[in-house]
Design a binder for these strands. Structure first.
Lengths: 342, 342
DNA sequence: AGCATTTACGAAACCGTTTTCGTGTTGAAA
DNA sequence: TTTCAACACGAAAACGGTTTCGTAAATGCT
């Protein structure tokens, strides 16, 4: 078991100074070939690796980007992370993941800890609780301390920074319009409480489509799920009230795939044929949609692309390749047609 | 925009030495109350946060654990990570994620980079390629450098370290036995190539169950999928050959949920009723199994538990709360009964 | 008053590197 | 022979802290 060796050890052992060793290892012209050879051989033999903390302290660069997300066991986020990881890696960065669990408190803690010099920049998707109570002071601190950060997916207008979002409104508009064009008359919406910005935007798209086709807005077939994502039972019961009625809707647009999948399940239980009696379109093209039966038509939002672009934006800021005003990139969506629509 | 302030700045501003500031901020008894108050107030006002790199360099502790996994967009792994993150956080550690993409090269790179002092310990699930070519020198390096690491899920006997695995053999045995007991006569196995240890163990469990009930081993209904996990098309075609035959099996045990879900899909296409004509049990209780229809009976492997325990083991080693011989923890499974079995 | 002990703080070393700035030695040009 | 560059290397500062040790002044004790 060779002990972890430092530059000092090498210097002492070879009777030279640490500066000489350092220079030799970087092939500096200041050092003679023979000395370089000797030092390199020695370093090689002992598998010398420069101490990463020392490097980071010296260079004031960590080559790490922090990611703060509401949860990790979630197709959307895991795909975004995957995208982030890819470009981060390409550009020489590592990724540190922190989970807020949709809690304001944890989000704040995570961000404060990342802001103490652990990372060169941060990628954040805001937690539901933060969106609810609208306290964004931790983001101001980031700005004050000059730490680059970009918000993705769950963003807030009042925070000044780079942002990247899905064209939620547009995607919902497309989906709803499609349902209308195919002949649906009674289109329900399953969404989130309105403090969740993405749910809100999708609802707006839904409303715009209704308007365009002169459909009347019917609040009785629009429900906002106030349960946690992993409380399938609770969500199930809320959706049930929408479908187990005398005249159920003939189409449903759901703002995520979980709601869509649950709606599908309930529809089948109620004896409805999907897509004949009831068409369903979800948002987020994940694995549930692909494997449910009938498979679900969805608004595909290119999760990994979002992660990649977010990482690009952040790293460009970190490396000052972008220096102008903050930008907001909108990623467009497209409908992934499957079996739950005609 | 207040500039990031250091201890030196505080010292200079207040006309004291850096040591005094440092001590005052940690409430040392060596410093008088009045001085402490003054220093703390000043530090507070400027939102002083000690530089994390400096701390880490000094203490030789990073309070970070590295995680190297084959992929991230995968229910099993994302759940394991979730478990890891939870206990890591509880115990004051952060988590750095690296993805090997099932590549030996990337795994090696990742581990080498983590081993340079970036983390206090590493959690690893070995990539398929590494398992295939059986080159484990990077693990030896970790041992030589005294960097604690624990292997989870995909492990190798010849690597000496703490390990934590699912009771793959036992789970497969239970599942297969169950199928037999319920009357299945022709039980197919869909597995991975044999260099994937978990697939291999599950196959062994399958074989043991056959033996126990005096079933003959029939190689023609045992297939090893050699496609990548995201090549659904390729996997689909391989499984099709198993089901689209004159006398298809009346039960299938699949070593993961993707194979099970695909088998289900194919069975339905072939007009088989699941579970009447064909029963299916998968491994890994993920979201696909829950939402497919009929929903899939699976061998639940408690992914998050594995992550939690893995993190516990690692941190105990890091903090020397465990010092004895290496241990291997086996996490037992249980069958999650759903609609794909009688 | 004389000595021992606190009290309250500073100097300096240290963590492991990089980098700037000398500096002694050599070889070549004048 | 002198002078000057080039060469090859070392000393020291710096990154931002923590910590050990030393010490002057104030206090306690007899």
């Amino acid at each position: 078991m060779k002990p972890k060796i430092t530059i000092k050890d090498i210097a002492k052992e070879l009777g030279v100074s640490t500066s000489t060793v350092s220079k030799a290892l970087k092939d500096s012209h200041e050092i003679s070939e023979s000395t370089k050879l000797k030092i390199k051989a020695f370093a090689d033999f002992y598998h010398y690796k420069p101490n990463s903390m020392a490097l980071k302290l010296r260079s004031q660069k960590t080559m790490v980007i922090g990611v703060v997300i509401p949860e990790i066991v979630h197709h959307f986020f895991s795909r975004v992370i995957s995208g982030i990881e890819k470009v981060a890696n390409q550009r020489g960065y590592n990724v540190m993941i922190c989970v807020s669990n949709e809690s304001y408190e944890k989000e704040l803690l995570n961000i404060e800890m990342l802001a103490n010099g652990s990372v060169d920049g941060i990628l954040i998707s805001i937690s539901k609780e933060t969106q609810k109570i609208k306290d964004f002071k931790h983001f101001n601190e980031l700005s004050e301390n000059n730490i680059p950060f970009v918000l993705f997916d769950r963003v807030e207008n009042e925070i000044e920074c780079d942002k990247i979002i899905i064209d939620d409104e547009g995607g919902a508009f497309k989906a709803t319009s499609y349902l209308i064009e195919k002949g649906a008359k009674k289109i329900a919406l399953i969404t989130t409480p309105n403090y969740v910005t993405v749910g809100e935007s999708r609802k707006e798209g839904y409303l715009r489509a209704l308007q365009k086709f002169n459909f009347e807005y019917n609040p009785s077939i629009v429900i906002a799920i106030d349960k946690n994502d992993d409380d399938h039972e609770g969500i199930y019961n809320q959706i049930k009230k929408l479908i187990f009625v005398k005249n159920p809707p003939d189409a449903i647009f759901a703002v995520n795939e979980l709601y869509a999948a649950l709606a599908l399940k309930i529809a089948k239980e109620r004896g409805l044929n999907v897509p004949k009696d009831l068409e369903i379109i979800g948002f987020t093209d994940g694995i549930i949609s692909e494997f449910s039966s009938p498979s679900l038509t969805t608004v595909a939002q290119h999760d990994a692309t979002m992660g990649k672009h977010a990482a690009e934006m952040l790293i460009n800021r970190i490396e000052k390749k972008t220096t102008g005003a903050f930008e907001t990139e909108v990623i467009s969506t497209n409908i992934m047609f499957r079996e739950s629509t005609k």
